[in-house]
Design a binder for these strands. Structure first.
Lengths: 204, 204
DNA sequence: TGTACATCAGTGAACGCGCGTTCACTGATGTAC
DNA sequence: TGTACATCAGTGAACGCGCGTTCACTGATGTAC
């Protein structure tokens, strides 16, 4: 890793923490450069303005989340061949991961950005949208494989069901933040798991 | 209504719209007073500082949400005596209400505040927390009445299930905002409804 | 009914601080010949 | 191997604008006697 990517990463780390704590607008460049131990102009060497920082943060977050889902559900698929059971294992692992974070998951950059989107240019907003559409597609295709084996016990829109994973994660993290209860998000994911278990359980 | 409450309400209306669009910090007092057609000092006659505006906005939003839930679920109870079916009717009505809003629900003040909580004093954060705990209690007691009649088909934490209503609303609104699809929140509520239907369906 | 005073619902100008951004510059490292 | 030049990864000082907040004031309405 070059020196360049080192400093850049440090800026992004510091900025992400600050933005999750108090929002993008309320996070000053002064504060970021203090945390990253560079000068104000050092920041502008790496990012041409604050909007470009937002885009970079969001891109990095989305990549990390995608990598996490890839690893988690391919690991789950190794543990069980059945599409339903490997999905349930994956969600359990996701819930445990969230619960294991001592001070709770830092929260989701998506939600923080969504509620301040007018501050950003269209590129940042589209990034956000494309990420969620990507997760819809990912989970929808998993649910289709499950539905091929287990006929759903209720008539559901598979796109909406794909979105439900993102929705439950986002909603759970908002709750966790507002309640200051570190297991809120993890419990909501376990309820989503319970729903899928019932929805795809074989008819008796 | 006195002139005082008129102007105050107008300030809150303008502020709420602006905050939902771009966040609290990015909403300037200049912009609020322009929308409410008063002078900057007129604002400070009604609110001693920006933090007091945040508290008032949140209080008003929570009251409105509580009134909405009261009306909706008591209307649903009139339509069907059975606790499960009246719950399902109430959720359907909630989903329809969200779908009927032409430009989508304005979004949730709770989430916007939760992701900027370090900006506010403890009173504002506690208000947020108490509101969600109130909704937990409200829905938990409804689920208890249902569980008395229909034995749940899965072992669920009733507090978490009570939270799930808030979580699905919040998560759905985040999605709706990010996706720019006006029916996202409403569809997520219909999935929650589907879950409750399966969870409390009589064993065959 | 008249007068005196108090409160309400603001106005308008000013202040100072912090913010994002710019600009001229610099020392260390890399590359061409 | 030496020299010249280019690029990289920043520094430090300055700028101007917008922000939240204050303060002295004001005209309209309400209340006491």
């Amino acid at each position: 890793m070059t020196k360049k990517t080192n400093t850049r990463t440090k800026i992004l780390d510091v900025a992400e923490n600050a933005v999750l704590e108090k929002g993008f607008e309320a996070t000053s460049i002064d504060e970021i450069v203090a945390g990253a131990q560079i000068s104000r102009s050092g920041f502008f060497y790496h990012f041409k303005d604050k909007n470009e920082l937002a885009r970079a943060m969001l891109e990095r977050y989305i990549d990390a989340e995608n990598t996490l889902y890839d690893e988690l559900f391919s690991r789950a698929a190794e543990l069980n061949d059945d599409p339903l059971h490997s999905m349930l294992i994956g969600l359990k692992m996701l819930a445990e991961m969230l619960a294991d974070m001592p001070d709770g998951h830092p929260g989701c950059v998506i939600a923080a950005t969504a509620y301040q989107d007018r501050l950003f240019d269209k590129g940042v907003q589209d990034l956000n949208r494309e990420a969620i559409l990507g997760w819809r597609k990912r989970f929808r295709s998993m649910f289709e494989k499950i539905a091929d084996v287990y006929e759903p016990r209720d008539d559901v829109n598979l796109d909406a069901l794909g979105d439900m994973v993102s929705s439950v994660v986002e909603g759970g993290l908002v709750l966790q933040r507002a309640l200051r209860e570190n297991n809120a998000a993890s419990e909501q994911i376990m309820l989503l798991r319970s729903y899928l278990k019932l929805l795809f359980s074989p008819k008796s």
